[in-house]
Amino acid sequence: MSTTAVGLRQNPAARFWDSTNGKKAVMAVTGAILFLFVIGHLAGNLQIFEGREKLNAYGHFLHSIGEVLWIVRVILIVAVVLHITATVQLALRKKRARPVGYSRREAIASSYASRTMYWSGPIVLAFVIFHLLQFTAGYIHPESQFIEGDVYRNVVAGFQVWWVSAWYIFSLCLLGLHLRHGIWSMFQSVGFNHPKHTPQLKSAALIIAVLIVLGYISIPISVLLGIVK
C-alpha cells in the first residue's frame, strides 16, 4: 500500500469524505448554502416590479461590494462543485451496490422529484451558466441590447425573446423539483423524519418549492405579457 493511500486513510477529512454519510452531509450543507442563495437571488430579482431605479440600484450595490461579492461567488462555486461531485459519487456507489437492475422497477416510496434529482441538477447548472452569460457578462445579448449597469433594461430585453423565457421557465420548473426533494431530504437530515410529521413536512417542502418557482417565473411571464416594460 502506498504512503499516499495510508495518509488518506489516516486523514479524518478524507475518511469523512470517503464515507457515504460524509457525502450525504456535504450534500446537505452545500444544498443549504445554495438554497439560501436561491432565496436571496429571488428577493433581489423581484425588485424589478418596483421599477428601473430600484433594480438598477440593487445591481449597483452588488458591484460596489466587489471583494465581498467575489468571496460569495467563490463559496457558491465550491458549494456547487462539492454538491454535484457528492451527488454523482453517491449515484455511482448506489449503482455499484446493485449492478443488476430490477426486473420490474416500481417507484413505490420515491417521488418523481427524487427520481429526476440526478438529471435535473446538471440541467439547472447549464441554465445557471447560460443565465450568467446572458445577464451578467452580456455575451448572449446582441450588443445593441445589452447596456452594462442597466440591469432593468437588460432583463426586460432578454426576456422579450420568447425562447429565452421558455428556457428560463422550464429550468425553474426543474429547479422546483430539485428543491422539493432537496428540502425534504434536509428535513430528514436534521432528524425531522418522524412518521407523524412526514405528511406536513412533505407539504411544506412542496409549498416552499412552488412559491420559489412562481416568484422566479413571474418575471419572464410579466415581461412577455407587457406588465413589465
Score class of each variant (00 low, 15 high):
residue 77 I to V: 15
residue 3 T to H: 12
residue 118 Y to R: 14
residue 168 Y to D: 09
residue 192 F to Q: 08
residue 179 L to S: 06
residue 226 G to W: 00
residue 42 L to W: 06
residue 20 T to Q: 11
residue 164 V to F: 08
residue 216 Y to S: 03
residue 159 F to S: 01
residue 42 L to I: 02
residue 150 D to N: 09
residue 59 G to P: 00
residue 144 S to I: 05
residue 21 N to M: 09
residue 165 S to F: 00
residue 200 Q to G: 07
residue 84 I to D: 09
residue 168 Y to M: 10
residue 123 I to Y: 13
residue 2 S to W: 07
residue 114 S to P: 04
residue 64 S to C: 00
residue 94 K to I: 01
residue 197 H to K: 13
residue 19 S to M: 03
residue 202 K to L: 04
residue 91 A to W: 11
residue 225 L to E: 02
residue 175 L to C: 06
residue 228 V to A: 03
residue 29 V to Q: 05
residue 93 R to E: 15
residue 45 N to L: 13
residue 115 R to E: 10
residue 130 F to C: 04
residue 179 L to D: 03
residue 93 R to F: 01
residue 190 V to K: 08
residue 229 K to R: 15
residue 29 V to W: 12
residue 51 G to E: 02
residue 10 Q to F: 09
residue 61 F to G: 00
residue 21 N to A: 14
residue 138 G to E: 03
residue 40 G to N: 07
residue 171 S to V: 04
residue 220 P to R: 02
residue 111 S to M: 02
residue 180 R to L: 08
residue 21 N to E: 09
residue 60 H to E: 14
residue 175 L to Y: 12
residue 162 W to T: 12
residue 4 T to K: 15
residue 113 A to I: 01
residue 209 A to I: 04
residue 96 R to S: 13
residue 162 W to F: 15
residue 98 R to S: 04
residue 207 I to S: 01
residue 64 S to A: 13
residue 50 E to Y: 13
residue 116 T to D: 03
residue 85 T to Q: 07
residue 128 V to C: 03
residue 168 Y to W: 12
residue 215 G to N: 03
residue 112 Y to R: 13
